[in-house]
Amino acid sequence: MNEPLDHLLAAYRAEPVDDGAARLTRARVLASHARRAQTRPLRAFGWFAGALLCGSSAMAAVSNATAIVAHVSALFAGPSPASQGRVARVAVPPTSERAATPAVAPQRHAPAIATAPGPTPTPPAAAPARAAHDAASHAERDAERRTRTGVAPRPSGANGDADVAAFERAHRLHFAGGEARAAIAAWSSYLARFPRGRFTLEAGYNLAMAYVREGDVDAARSALQPFATGEHGGYRRREARALLNALRKDGSGRSQVSVR
């Protein structure tokens, strides 16, 4: 009590506290508590509903994003991761055997028109020729786009370099070499070596194109059928259907694929 602060402290301690509002505060506390108790189940439901909504929205967003990524990657960079996952189920024809010995004799009209896009010589060959030409030019556009945009094939796994090298070699033979038989051998070799490789899907489709160029209609049909029936998703489905329809109309009149 011998300094000003002690004097102030003594006065502060002695100051009476007005508790006139104590009963009012008590009533407020109990009313608020009762209100909370009543709304607690509602709040719990609200949290649950909110969590459910957020979760489902996130799932939808992720699914949509995955679909968009798959679509874009199919457009610009080749098969999507999702379609790569299905590569294991791809029924790749026994390419090594075909590569070694072409089973069917080349049919003249298909490769002639496919490799030389010009006026169609005969009406029956026009449809397959146009479809083959469209498909081949589409593949060439893909290759050009890849070159232009600098999208290089990315290696996957330990043998990624060999994967890329084999694909590039087959790609060169297919698009630059002009030798359908050599391209068939190269694509078959790629598919045999890398049945689950980074470019298996593209290689399978390019092999079918090479068969069309070579005139091996039966091999082309069996190679195109998985793409036309959608076994690989939407990848080249439209082109494969058109090509198969064109091949079906071509001469034989037989239908080996049911286009739905």
Binding site: D19, A22, T25, R26, V29, L30, H33, A34
Partner: peptide
């Protein structure tokens, strides 16, 4: 809930 009122009375 009544316990809350009793605690209030004791300690407010």
């Amino acid at each position: 809930s009544a316990a809350l009122g009793e605690i209030y009375d004791l300690h407010h």
